[in-house]
């Protein structure tokens, strides 16, 4: 588990519109990489290209390469579904399957992947995933109640449990705490620090203090102007970005001097 991702000269297009231009970065395994930047700068778009989720938008395409360890994610014979199995994603709004029980939500990924497991093995895996997501103690007595009955923070941790149940290599998180209160946010942040022992984590966040707290590496995206493509301005160790960034645009953004 936990693989390195090498992105090289990545351009992202929606049809003819160049949305993100020339991104190169190395995402280290067993670490948290945070992506920050103003709305519309392409950081979420970029995140989605890491597991080809952006292809759900018609006519979206990329140029350049994304390589996970030695596997080219955009190679000719690569099945995007297989990519998404290895690179899981957690979204801004917790999105458990509303009609399914807590148990089935966690098991869903495996069932969809046609893994046939004995009942006892499945029970183990659900328990292990919920424990990894720090949710087990809160739900162990109501595993067969609907997931939609949980609080927002619990639902988000349920989604994380569902994502890690299929044992991905990489976990992508798109503003996972922006709809949560500070206590649930704290729980998710603690969880990220625990999960990075086994996973490569990439998180998009608007909360710069969150990026500073949880990440090892921070990348700053910006766009030159309206209608221009977003680009990666700077990526470096998080302590460096928040103490002595090398680019003025980065400093202006993190210090709140923009516009």
């Amino acid at each position: 588990m936990a693989k390195r991702i090498e992105v090289k000269d990545l351009d992202i297009y929606y049809d003819k519109f160049l949305a993100v231009q020339g991104v190169s970065m190395t995402i280290q395994p067993r670490s948290v990489t945070a992506l920050i930047g103003p709305s519309g700068c392409g950081k979420s778009t970029f995140l989605r290209t890491l597991n080809r989720m952006h292809e759900l938008v018609p006519n979206a395409r990329v140029e350049g390469s994304v390589v996970m360890d030695d596997d080219d994610l955009y190679g000719p014979n690569v099945d995007p579904v297989n990519v998404r199995r290895q690179i899981g994603m957690v979204f801004q709004r917790a999105n458990p399957f509303p009609t399914m029980s807590i148990y089935d939500n966690v098991a869903a990924g495996l069932k969809l992947n046609n893994k046939r497991l004995k009942k006892s093995d499945m029970d183990d895996l659900v328990e292990r995933s919920l424990k990894s997501a720090n949710l087990w103690e809160e739900v162990k007595d109501r595993l067969h109640k609907p997931g939609s009955g949980l609080s927002g923070g619990q639902q988000q941790r349920l989604c994380i449990a569902r994502a890690i149940a299929v044992q991905p290599e990489v976990l992508l998180m798109d503003e996972p705490c922006s709809a949560l209160d500070p206590i649930s946010t704290q729980a998710i942040e603690d969880l990220m620090l625990e999960l990075k022992a086994n996973y490569t984590i990439v998180i998009v966040t608007h909360n710069m203090q969150q990026a500073a707290r949880v990440s090892d590496t921070t990348g700053f995206f910006n766009l030159q102007g309206v209608g221009k493509p977003g680009e990666l301005v700077e990526i470096d160790e998080t302590t460096r970005i928040f103490s002595t960034p090398s680019q003025k645009a980065t400093e202006d953004y993190i210090s709140g001097r923009f516009g």
Partner: peptide, 9 residues
């Protein structure tokens, strides 16, 4: 204000 970078310095 949670100053960072130059402000923090």
């Amino acid at each position: 204000q949670a100053p960072v970078a130059t402000d923090l310095r």
